[in-house]
Write a protein that binds this DNA or RNA. Structure first.
Lengths: 344, 344
DNA sequence: CATTCTTGTGGAACCGGTTCCCCTTTTCGC
DNA sequence: GCGAAAAGGGGAACCGGTTCCACAAGAATG
């Protein structure tokens, strides 16, 4: 493998000049620069990134920490991040930090401490105090998608707003028996689900309606199981479901179909996400576009690396309501004309 | 940040000894080693990976190239890879190479050429000649999950076998009108789908049955759309479907339900994958366990890095048939006792 | 025309580790 | 008890870039 010294010799200049010509820093005569770059190209010269990192202290690499890789939301965010980094010439090092695993501990205690990146993107991490401390101790800029505490710029969906908007949509259609299908209590569990539940509760209370909340694992099969349970009992059955995310909502739709409950005429279902399967199930939902959240966070981080003075700003995204065919007025209502399509 | 020199001074030894004590290479007195490691720990010393890489030529990092991050198969493989790397203390740098994009070109021409890894894992890459050439030019060990050409160890599902096994299962149940639902022709498209189609075709021909093949986009909505089309026409409707993967199969099941065609009594459906949703849809399928494929490939690569003499061996996995409740004898057949559960 | 500023280039130090080579002290075999 | 081998440790070279500094030549300034 040829190094910069070989290139310099072949181009008849010193190592220093060759470096300046290739990096673009400092004074180099135009002719010299041209010659050096041509020779470097001919020799197939590729600079050693370890050497460059050692000398400059910059790695041109971004770390990404996330608890799941195989969930739709996370995979989408990751693709968004990757897309921006690819454009910018940055590498992406991935750290998988599944909650409660030994691997997660090692990620925080060993892997991240190595600082093989210029900045870090944390996605839906929900770190505990110790983890947060480690994150800060790294001393590199951190941006997060979905809340993380402080010390970081945050890009996230306004979950409370999304849930309020979804609930309002159902109330406007005339529903009064609306059940929230989700994973947690308001006081524990992932922040996302708590905020959504809370948005639902507040809107219901404001409208003078009764809050009902059914636990469900946050996944498609989880939504299915919980819905079979709930809908199987006609006494408990609501006329509308608000699911904490689209996967749960779709699980519920599948359950309803199996039980012979027509959607939306007998049961309305709303999700939050606009998952790739949402269209196929005609699911009314709030779009959260994780891909652009990932892109946004990445741009924010890169901006901060360019200019460290740049103060990280929190970005909160207001989801757009996408009305499809899983919501309708409750059964027994005089038919109301409802605009179908996208509204804000 | 304290460097190894600071540690050495604090421990009262030379840089060289400190390095030997910490890396475990060369002779160091037990007492000295203990003292150095203790001091290093107290100082919170973390070696600079760029410096170590520069000196040793090893990065302790593995590159992973894949065309999709958000598909079940790929995400699972990635998790498997990540798990093994985490245990082994290796970092993972991810390169997204979506077919036909400018980004993919840059990955092959620029990013990979930087060699920021000791070895590479290619997942379902289907590289063209130019790309394959670049891969070889890197001069680092490459292992692939799903075929890649040559110059590499390969871990993959025996796709032809899986399709044969699935077809045989349907034939044994008494089906004769079995349609293959998949993406491609035998001569073009991803190798995986071609092999599966070919396994189906051969088995059908050997049994003296007629081959019918319906195109479908390889995704859940794709399978749904193709199945609606096929099943909507009673004249064309088969008694069994073999889908190229579980997502397509599930799409077909959903379509059948919508059309009021009971599964499995009027229509049997078999998939290949054992997708996380398979159980929920009671889908009979062939398990391909992408997670362990990823783990396997990673172990193979790490083994090769430990001992370069170790010849990469191709591993072909024979899928296990998991019989659930989406397959049954065709309608109008005298009921046959069929073992439900897992068989090999 | 003398002085200062800008441009262009080379030499050498430096980033922070690892490892080769050499020297000293122990240990071991006979 | 002596020579050889093993164990332990220090100095310095080295990995391959980047950048500081010194210096020279040409351009701009007064």
């Amino acid at each position: 493998m040829s190094g910069i010294e070989d290139v310099a010799r072949a181009a008849g200049v010193s190592k220093a000049t060759a470096s300046r010509a290739l990096t673009g820093h400092g004074y180099v005569a135009a002719a010299t620069r041209e010659r050096v770059t041509r020779v470097a190209h001919e020799m197939g010269y590729v600079p050693s990134s370890s050497a460059a990192s050692l000398a400059t202290g910059r790695t041109r690499n971004i770390g990404v920490v996330m608890p799941y890789l195989n969930r739709w939301f996370f995979a989408e965010v990751l693709e968004g991040i990757q897309e921006v980094l690819l454009e910018s010439g940055y590498d992406l090092t991935l750290y998988d930090a599944k909650p409660g695993t030994e691997g997660r501990r090692r990620v925080f205690d060993d892997f991240l401490a190595r600082k093989r990146f210029d900045g870090l993107i944390a996605v839906g991490l929900e770190p505990d105090d110790h983890e947060l401390e480690r994150l800060v101790a790294i001393g590199r800029p951190v941006v997060s998608v979905v809340a993380i505490g402080d010390n970081a710029g945050v890009v996230r969906l306004d979950d409370e707003y999304a849930a309020r908007r979804a609930t309002t949509h159902l109330i406007e259609l005339g529903h009064t028996k609306i059940t929230f299908l989700g994973g947690v209590s308001v006081s524990s569990g992932p922040h996302v689900d708590r905020a959504r539940l809370s948005g639902y509760q507040r809107t219901m209370t404001e409208a003078g309606l009764t809050v009902t909340h059914v636990r469900s694992e946050v996944s498609l099969p989880g939504g299915y199981a919980a819905a079979v349970d709930l809908l199987g009992d006609p006494a408990r059955r609501p006329t509308a479901l608000l699911a904490t995310c689209d996967e749960v909502a779709i699980g519920a739709i599948i359950a309803a179909r199996r039980l012979g409950i027509p959607v939306p005429s007998a049961l309305s279902v709303v999700g939050i996400d606009n998952h790739e399967f949402a269209e196929m199930f005609s699911l009314t939902t709030l779009e959260q576009s994780p891909r652009s959240q990932g892109m946004h966070a990445t741009r924010m981080l890169l901006g901060q690396l360019e200019d460290p003075a740049q103060v990280p700003q929190d970005v909160s995204i207001q989801a757009r309501l996408i009305v499809r065919n899983s919501t309708a007025p409750p059964p027994g209502t005089a038919s109301v004309t409802v605009g179908v399509g996208v509204t804000s």
